[in-house]
Design a protein around this nucleic acid. Structure first.
Lengths: 337, 337
DNA sequence: GACTTTAATGCAATCGATTGCAATTTGCGC
DNA sequence: GCGCAAATTGCAATCGATTGCATTAAAGTC
C-alpha cells in the first residue's frame, strides 16, 4: 500500500494525501479526517525512505562500535552495553532512529560511508581505541561525528567522556587512605582513556613517594580472560601486592577471580577497585569499589552534542561528565589492618 | 557529491556512472576504471537510500527490544546484550544493516510501522513477553518477522529459542543428584520462556515426589534489585531452603547477594543455578552453574530464519537450539553434605 | 452581478539513483 | 564501400514521497 493507492481510495490526489498526513494547514479538516481514517484502516504508513530522499532531512544516527579484529569481543563489556542502551533511549526520545554497526577498528573510514551514502545524518563512535589520527582525518572531512573517549592534544573531533585523570587520582587517594602501599595497575594503557586513568593514578602515587614500576602494570584488553591472565602475571611479579586498580569493572571481576585462585582474600589481603560502575558491580561478591561514569547522562550528552554539530553550530565542546568514586567492600580496610 | 556531479567530472551520463560502479557488463573497462578512480578520489559513495528506493531491495533489518514501561531496564540483562552482539555480527556478515529500537511492549504495533514505512525488510523481536496475541496478529498481517522466545500453542509467528522445558529439567536433575531437596524457583513465570523453565523443573521434582509449593516460587523481573528482594522474601518464607533455580544468570547473581545477606554460604548451605551462561557467570564468585544458551548461534539462526522468510519460503520452522547444563561451583555438593 | 479574496485541491518537478530501450560508434565480412 | 552485429553510451521513465505554483470553487464586497 502506498500513497497513490490511498489517494485512489479517497478519490483525491497524492498531494492531498500528503498534506492530510503531514499536518499541513492547506487542507480541509473533513478531508484530513477522512484520509487519516482510511490510512489507519489499511495500515498505511508513510514511507520514510522516500520522504527523506525528497526532503533531504534524515532522522537516523549511526552508532559505530569499533572492535579490534584480533578480539572481536569488545562487545562483551557491560559498560559498552550500558552506553548503547542509553543512546537508544536518548535517540528515541528525540525522534531519531539508531543504526548500529560493529566495525573493524582499522577500517573506520567505512563509517564515513554511512554518511556519504546518505544512510545517516551523523555518527557516534564508541571508543577511540588507537585511532586518534584516523578520527582526526574523518573530522577534517567535515563528517558530523562525536566520539566517546578521552580528550587528547591536537583533537579536531568532538569528544564526550568522563574525567579519566581525576578518576585515576580518586582511586589512588582512596587506596592510600585505606593504608594500601603496594599497588598494581591492570589495563591496556595503549588506549587513551586507560592511559589517562593510569596517569592520574600514578601521578598521585608519585606525589606520595610510591612510584609504580613497569612490572606493576599489565596490559589487558577488555576481555575477561585476558584480564585473568594478566592479573596472574602481576601477582607472580609482585607477590606482596595489596591493591589492584583495574581499568574497568569487567577487569576488576576477572582480577578478583585470579586473586582468589592464588589464595588472596578480597579485601583483607588485596583491595580491588574497578572503573565504570556497571550495574553488576554492586552485586558482585564482594561489591566492587569503582569510579562511576554516568552512563545514562552519557547517551544524552553524546546525542545532544551530535545534533548541535549537525545543526551547524561551531564545534560544540562538552565538559567532562561527572566522575565520582563509589566505595564498596572490595577496597575497604578490614580487621586485617 | 552525488552521481550527477561525478558524471559531469567524468564527462559521461549518470547511466554510465551507475554502470561503472555497479559492476554492469554493459560498459567499457577503461571507462569503468576511470570513473572508479574519480569516485575514490572524491570520496563518492553511492547513496543507498536512493538506490533501494529505486530498486525496492532493502538491506536493513530492524531489531526490536521490547521493554515494559514500568521498568525500562530490560536492557540491563547481559544475555540480551549477547544476543544483540551476535545479531550485529550475523547481519554484518550477510551484508545487512541493523536498525536497533527499544519499544514499549504494549505498543508493539509500532514495530510494524518500520516495515510498512519501508525502513526495514524484516523484523527481529527479542522476547515475546506477555504479548503472544499481539505477535500473532502482526504475523497474520504478513509482516516478515522472527521472535526470540518460546514455542507456544497457536503460534503463527516464527520463533527461535532454546528448549526451556529441557533446561528446567536438567537443573532439577542436577540439583537432585547433588542431594538437594528443598528447592525454590526465582523468576517471573508470567513470561513464556520462564514458565517453560519452571514447568520442566517442577515436573521433574514432582516425579521425584518433591512438589514445589506456591511460596517456593517468587516473581522477579529481569532486574537485579527486584531479584534481590524476591530472594529475600523466599528465604523468609522457606528458611530451610537448600537450592535456588533462578531463571537468568542476572537473577542468580542477585540471589547470591541476597543469600549472603542472610548469612547463607554458597554452595555449602544453598546451591544456586542460573540460566543463559552469560560470560560473567564463569567469573562470578562462586562461578555459577547455569544452562547454556548458545548465544552466537542464536544470532545466526534468527537472521537465517528471517531471511528465508523474506525470500518467501513457507514459514520456516527452527528446531530448538542446543540447551546444555554447565556445572560450576555454585551448585556443587560440598563437605557440608 | 462583476470582482476580489480565501480556501482547497491538483499538476508537475524534484530528491538520487537504476534500467529498458534507442542511438551511436566500431569492427568485421564479403 | 555497404550492411549487419556487437559494444558502448545516453535518454527518459521510474521508485514514493513533497511542495511551489496554477487552478478551481466558494465566499465576501460594493
Amino acid at each position: 500500500m502506498q500513497m497513490a493507492d490511498l489517494a485512489r481510495l479517497a478519490g483525491v490526489s497524492t498531494s492531498t494525501v500528503s498534506r492530510a498526513l503531514s499536518g499541513s494547514a492547506l487542507i480541509n479538516e473533513e478531508t484530513r479526517e477522512r484520509i487519516q481514517a482510511l490510512a489507519r484502516q489499511f495500515n498505511y504508513t508513510i514511507n520514510s525512505v522516500a520522504t527523506n530522499l525528497r526532503s533531504g532531512v534524515k532522522r537516523t544516527i549511526a552508532v559505530v562500535v569499533p572492535y579490534e579484529m584480533a578480539s572481536r569481543q569488545s562487545f562483551a563489556d557491560p559498560f559498552l552495553h550500558g552506553i548503547i542502551g542509553s543512546l537508544a533511549d536518548a535517540l528515541t526520545e528525540r525522534g531519531y532512529e539508531m543504526l548500529l554497526s560493529r566495525m573493524d577498528a582499522d577500517r573506520l573510514d567505512m563509517a564515513a560511508a554511512l554518511i556519504d551514502g546518505g544512510r545517516a545524518a551523523g555518527l557516534i563512535l564508541i571508543g577511540q581505541w588507537r585511532h586518534h589520527d584516523q578520527l582526526n582525518a574523518m573530522a577534517e572531512r567535515g563528517l558530523p561525528m562525536v566520539v566517546w573517549g578521552a580528550r587528547l592534544p591536537h583533537q579536531n573531533y568532538c569528544i564526550v567522556g568522563g574525567d579519566n585523570v581525576l578518576g585515576g587520582r580518586l582511586v589512588a587517594e582512596h587506596l592510600l587512605a585505606q593504608g594500601r602501599r603496594r599497588m598494581v595497575f591492570l589495563g591496556d594503557a595503549g588506549l587513551p582513556e586507560v592511559a589517562q586513568r593510569y596517569r592520574g593514578f600514578a601521578q598521585c602515587l608519585r606525589k606520595n613517594a610510591l612510584p609504580l614500576l613497569e612490572q606493576q602494570r599489565a596490559a589487558a584488553s577488555f576481555l575477561a580472560d585476558s584480564g585473568r591472565k594478566a592479573m596472574l602475571a602481576l601477582i607472580d611479579a609482585n607477590p606482596t601486592l595489596d591493591a589492584v586498580f583495574a581499568s574497568s569493572d569487567l577487569l576488576a571481576m576477572a582480577a578478583i577471580g585470579a586473586l582468589r585462585e592464588r589464595g588472596r582474600r578480597i579485601p583483607a589481603d588485596v583491595a580491588v577497585v574497578g572503573y565504570d560502575d556497571v550495574e553488576l558491580a554492586a552485586y558482585f561478591n564482594p561489591p566492587i569499589t569503582t569510579v562511576r561514569q554516568p552512563i545514562h547522562e552519557a547517551g544524552g550528552r553524546l546525542v545532544e552534542t551530535l545534533l548541535s554539530l549537525i545543526k551547524g553550530q561551531s564545534l560544540p565542546v562538552s565538559a567532562p561528565l561527572e566522575t565520582q568514586l563509589i566505595v564498596r567492600e572490595s577496597s575497604q580496610a578490614t580487621a586485617a589492618y
